[in-house]
Simulated assay, not measured.
Amino acid sequence: MAEPAIDPDAEHRASLGRRYFVRFEEDTLRQRPLWIRLIIEFLGTFVLVTVAAGSGVINHYVGNAPISRTAAVIAPGAVVMAMIYAWGPLSGLHINPAVTFAFAGRGVFPTKWVVPYWVVQLAGAICAALFLQGMFGDVSAGGNYPINTSGGEWKSFVMETILTAILASIILNTATGGRSIGHNAAIAVGSTVALLGLFASPISGASMNPARSLGPDIVGNDYTGWWVYVAGPVLGAAIAVAIIGTVRGRPDPDELAAAEGGALPMTATPTDAKATE
């Protein structure tokens, strides 16, 4: 019985496909230098705050609130989802000081990088607020302020704490080491940002991000309830770290290697791919 003929073109295409996916995985998981990370964190925070604060600023500028509350809270979730797909492998796309704090508290992010991340995240938020102020004026309309009722700041503080604990828990459980990468992280984190905003934004604005709130505060020189958006997310992130530590224990060696700049294990290597040609 004759053996079936081997199609060399098909084998060549399969070999190219294997090499492509190996290289794609290598590029996704390899560590970037700090300066690249900081550029991405700055740009990512700028985009996030432009979108998140922009709805309130533009509604105030145009009048009659053409951007609904639903659209205003879904848009930041959608842009976070898109940026994780595009930029997650480059910096981890924290774009939130509370998330950086959570990764560092978990022990999967170098502590020496925490302050530089915080600095560029706040700088990105301030630049976004300056952009909105220059374009439309009254950037304070895009800020997050506690509800104007008795006990409003405390209710907002409790909500920001709980919301951030939920968000940080999702991020910590879907991240690769100290980085949000891939469709699992993108869909989970982006949808969580949107869903939490849908039900909680009337209470605290559902910021869950000190940079997002402080950027418009600083540019608008209005610090009403600012402590809510610093203390709440920090406490919420700490709660998330405690929860994941309880249910999952300490980080495994792969997580620690990723945090310190080592490569995560891959399903194949270039040598393996070459051997299969």
Rank of each mutant, 00 (worst) to 15 (best):
D138R: 02
S140L: 01
S140I: 02
G142L: 09
G142W: 01
G142Y: 03
G142T: 12
N144H: 11
P146R: 08
N148E: 15
T149Q: 15
T149M: 14
T149L: 15
S150C: 05
G152Y: 05
E153C: 07
W154M: 14
F157D: 03
M159C: 15
I162K: 01
I162Q: 04
T164V: 11
T164I: 09
A165E: 12
S169T: 14
N173D: 11
A175I: 12
S180K: 02
I181Q: 00
I181T: 01
I181M: 02
H183W: 09
N184C: 04
A185K: 00
A185W: 00
I187Q: 01
I187S: 01
V189G: 09
G190P: 03
G190S: 09
T192P: 01
V193I: 11
A194D: 03
A194F: 05
L195N: 06
L196D: 08
L196Q: 12
G197I: 05
L198A: 08
S201N: 09
S201R: 03
P202Q: 12
P202H: 08
P202F: 07
I203Q: 11
S204F: 03
G205M: 10
A206H: 05
M208Q: 03
M208E: 10
M208C: 06
N209L: 12
P210F: 01
G215A: 10
I218R: 01
V219Q: 04
G220I: 02
N221Y: 12
T224F: 05
W226F: 13
W227Y: 14
G232S: 13
V234H: 03
A237M: 10
A238M: 12
A238P: 04
I239C: 07
A240F: 00
I243W: 10
I244S: 12
G245L: 05
G245Q: 12
G245H: 10
T246R: 13
R248G: 08
G249T: 11
G249E: 15
G249P: 14
D254I: 13
E255M: 08
L256R: 06
A258C: 07
A258I: 12
A258N: 09
E260P: 00
E260S: 10
E260V: 02
G261Y: 07
G262E: 09
